[in-house]
Amino acid sequence: MSCWDTVADYALRSVGIGERLLPRSDFTLCQQVTLIGSGMIWNIYFGTIALLSGFFLATALAMAKAAHSPLLRKPAEWFIFVFRGSPLFIQFFFAYFLFLSLKNVFPVFSPLTSAWAGALVVLFFNTSAYSAEIFYGAMQSIPKGDIEAADAYGMSGWPRFRRIIWPTMLRLAWPAYTNEAIFLFHATALVFFSGFPATQQMGDALYYANYFADKTFNPFIPYPILACYFILLTLTVIKLFGIVNQRLNRHLPQLQRGRIRLRPMLVR
């Protein structure tokens, strides 16, 4: 069986298209590269959707945390504390069993017991909390003069937020937010190890890497393959976020433009 056949059989295996049975013996390098790459579909799916949707909730949470009214501020503070103060791993477990119990009472919740929806919800809340803290910090460090200038022009409320506060907040938060995005993608590797079942062995990249390591008892091939895929993904994220960063900073003189520094500090 040539490598092209393997690619045709397994390239979309993680979403259930192609050969049903996973390889069981005589593992080739081609099989490992293809299947682990196929698993990356899930990592990209979880990361992208959670990031895009989490962005809006994070902005709202950051606004709420900066609000004067305790009715808005307290819930936002608690939400951020709960999701940032506990391990993502435990959050996955708790959410999975919570959804299982809910499913028994209200059948509406049954999609949430499968990974594609349930884990996505957890990741969405989690990244919202982390990003909200970043946005809140950026909002606190908006130069006072910017707001005063907006006031002097007679801006207030929504126009002031949309044209002054929000763009400046994003510009200041962007390097930290890039890190958050990278580590969110890394966190997606936890999904299939934390309660959520991989139905019909449709799992993410780490699931397949672990499968091969267990079967061949040789960790030195699947995990480096996985590492290569994730480094590629990380570089892509840095590239995309760098483009946005340039656009956010385009009005500043060349030397003042913030450069994104990767800080590997945000494991959950």
């Binding site: 890394h186 190890f193 780490l206 995990y223 996985l226 994730f230």
Partner: peptide
């Protein structure tokens, strides 16, 4: 080494690799 690759992958890798 810890940049760019999920830490959980390292956990799973090192346990077998160290043992071997």
């Amino acid at each position: 080494i810890v940049r760019g690759v999920p830490d959980i992958a390292f956990f799973l890798f090192f346990v077998i690799a160290l043992d071997q």
